[in-house]
Each structure stands twice: as C-alpha cells, then as structure tokens.
Amino acid sequence: MTTHLTFARGDITEAPVDAVVNAANSSLLGGGGVDGAIHRKGGPEILAACRALRASHHGRGLPTGQAVATTAGRLPARWVIHTVGPVWHPAEDRSALLASCYRESLRVADALGAATVAFPAISTGVYGWPIDDGARVAVHTVRETPTSVTEVRFVLFDDAAYEAFTAFG
C-alpha cells in the first residue's frame, strides 16, 4: 500500500485526520509552539492523559525519537501522537533521532489503526533544526517507512516551511 503525502499551510489543531502528531517536549506536559497549541485547543483531557503516562510508563519523560499516543480531547482528530524531536546541534548529526520521530509516530499510528495522520515540521521551531534539512529528513523518512497509514499530511505553520516541504514532495 502506498502512503499519499499532502502538504498544507495552516493550523495542525484543525486538521481533520485520525491522528495529529505533537512535537512534544520530553515532559509531555505541554510547552510552546505546536505542543502548546495542541494542549490549549485539545483541552484538559490531553494533559490528564499525559500525566497518566508520566505516572506509569514514562516517569522520567518520553525519550527523544520515541512516540506515544493519547486522546485528542477537543481536537477534530481522534488521537494525538506525541513525539520528542532532537535539538539541532551543528557539531553533532542527530538526523537519525529526527527520522525516528517520524518512523515511531507511524508505528504508533499503525497500532491505533489510524488511516490519516498530520505531522508538523518536528524540531524546526525552538529546537533549531534548519527547515530545509528538517523537511528533507521528514519527507524521505515517511516515504521510506512501511505503514498502513494511507495519507500523511504535513501541516506547516508558515510559508517558509510549506515551501521547504513541497520542494521535497
């Protein structure tokens, strides 16, 4: 089965998909950027589910490159898949960890039975990953990862991110 890739400029919290991927921090308790927007718009149900994860399997937080799912609360999606992207560092190649975020999110989506998934540009905000390289890693990884997901939608916040992702699409 081939996964269809689409690209949209917009607000990922409004994406009509089965699962929205959250570029979370390791605490899973909300933050800025995409993470903050998902927690604000999704409501307290997401935070409660994240706190339950912290109280059980992820007491020390979610490791970079891993993914875990919760309810989507008040979002149009059914689930939020939280993944922790790496902080970009010019002297250390962390692209394998960034690729792992996309692969692990698709693995979780498959386990949930999600057919449609929306991704943000993971690590390209406050984590400093250069948008062109982040787009390259994201699109290549999603294309190369076996999955039952039929559509991956990259929902990009601004024109620069949209242009970078569509250049690889």
Rank of each mutant, 00 (worst) to 15 (best):
I131F: 09
P76W: 08
F157I: 01
Y102I: 06
V17G: 06
P44F: 14
T70Q: 03
L97D: 15
A77Q: 06
G73Y: 02
S105R: 13
E151M: 05
L28D: 15
V20G: 05
A8F: 02
L112Q: 12
V155T: 04
G59F: 03
H4C: 10
A19G: 07
A52D: 07
F168V: 05
A72F: 00
N25M: 07
A164F: 12
A55K: 11
D93N: 11
L98N: 07
P16F: 03
I122N: 12
R74Y: 06
L112T: 00
V17S: 10
A114I: 00
G61V: 06
L53G: 07
N22T: 00
G61W: 06
T71W: 00
T150W: 02
V68A: 02
E144P: 00
T3M: 01
R94V: 14
R153A: 09
T64P: 04
A37Q: 04
F157C: 01
P76I: 09
S105E: 15
D159G: 04
G134S: 05
V20Y: 06
T150S: 14
P90G: 06
G125Q: 06
V155Y: 08
P16M: 03
R40T: 07
H82F: 09
P16L: 02
F157T: 03
C101T: 10
I122D: 08
M1V: 13
E104M: 10
A49K: 10
A167S: 10
A24K: 14
L75R: 10
E45R: 14
D18W: 00
W129S: 14
C50R: 11
F119D: 13
L97M: 12
V84D: 15
D133K: 12
V80F: 09
R60T: 13
R51L: 05
G36A: 04
G10C: 04
A37V: 03
F119T: 12
A15K: 09
A109K: 02
D159A: 10
E45Y: 04
R94K: 15
S27W: 13
A37P: 01
A48P: 09
V155E: 05
R136F: 05
A69E: 08
R60D: 13
S95Y: 11
V17K: 07
G33R: 04
F154G: 05
E45L: 08
H140L: 07
